[in-house]
Design a protein around this nucleic acid. Structure first.
Lengths: 158, 158
DNA sequence: TATTGTTATACTCTATAACTATA
DNA sequence: TATAGTTATAGAGTATAACAATA
């Protein structure tokens, strides 16, 4: 990839010379663009979910508990790559809202089995309506066709 | 997209039933996969750049200053979407290493023009060798063809 | 009045380590 | 001894607000 192939440019404001910036090597880094897209997607997600005050990590945990009731914190954490110390605090917060219940496992006294409460199930239904709209916004932003290609690509090493 | 179309599964450890987890709605969220890829890329970047103790944000600032010497903090910050308060601290750190110089602009006493020092230019050369290897690792991980498609896709809304 | 840059505060996410209780 | 979970601490990234200097 030629470093002279500049695609990303930023327009300039008055005060300095109004010439575009050269993004140089950043144009060749997947990470740079992935990061910008990730920030844009999360910003929309957080704004859209603001009425329920749910952040991406909390959402992913709720979804996994709902789809896999009774699994342990270790299992959920490993699946989502959330460190166990952080997951403990995150679950403490969700438990405080009355959305999640932790039960001692009868088969292993060390582990906690996770479940949604009735209130948690009800909250998740509302949350899913908001995330559906978020995903629609993303599809419009990214473009439906590009979104499909992107999703397929990303899943292959997700 | 059907919610029954489950692609991402996690293998299970002993102790619980060794059945795979259902990722449910997460399979349909671009943000979920983008986030995981971004974390993987940044983890490799940070590890690879550890000898120079350079993090992604610092790297992007160094690249932009090198390619656009004399521009202001406001300009660099807006281009990279780094908030001015954070950029001030980040530059303070780079200045402390002797890599970056801030000069009062003769045309606007409020703004600082940014330059790399000789040491900064030398350091950046070493940094670029490490980032080149990082990018090779990413290409191997993602796959060269997928990487090209991904880069093209992401640039369109970068 | 508005902008540039600085300092300070707070919250999230990430990474550790130390601790308990169980196995 | 190893694992599951908790608590505590520290660093990075993000979002504010308040402030000084300059426009």
């Amino acid at each position: 990839m030629s470093a002279s192939n500049r695609l990303s440019q930023a327009s300039e404001r008055v005060g300095e010379r109004a010439t575009a910036l050269d993004f140089a090597e950043l144009n060749d880094h997947v990470g740079y663009f992935v990061r910008r897209l990730q920030v844009a997607v999360f910003t929309d997600f957080i704004g859209r979910l603001a009425p329920m005050k749910v952040r991406p990590a909390q959402y992913s945990v709720l979804i996994l508990i709902a789809a896999n009731p009774g699994r342990s914190q270790a299992t959920i954490g490993q699946a989502l790559q959330i460190e166990r110390a952080r997951l403990a605090r995150l679950l403490h917060e969700l438990e405080g809202r009355g959305w999640v219940e932790r039960r001692r496992s009868p088969r292993d006294g060390r582990s906690h089995s996770l479940f949604l409460t009735a209130a948690g199930t009800k909250a998740l239904a509302r949350i899913k309506m908001l995330t559906a709209r978020h995903e629609q916004t993303m599809a419009a932003f990214i473009g439906p066709k590009r979104r499909a290609v992107l999703l397929k690509l990303l899943r292959e090493f997700g």
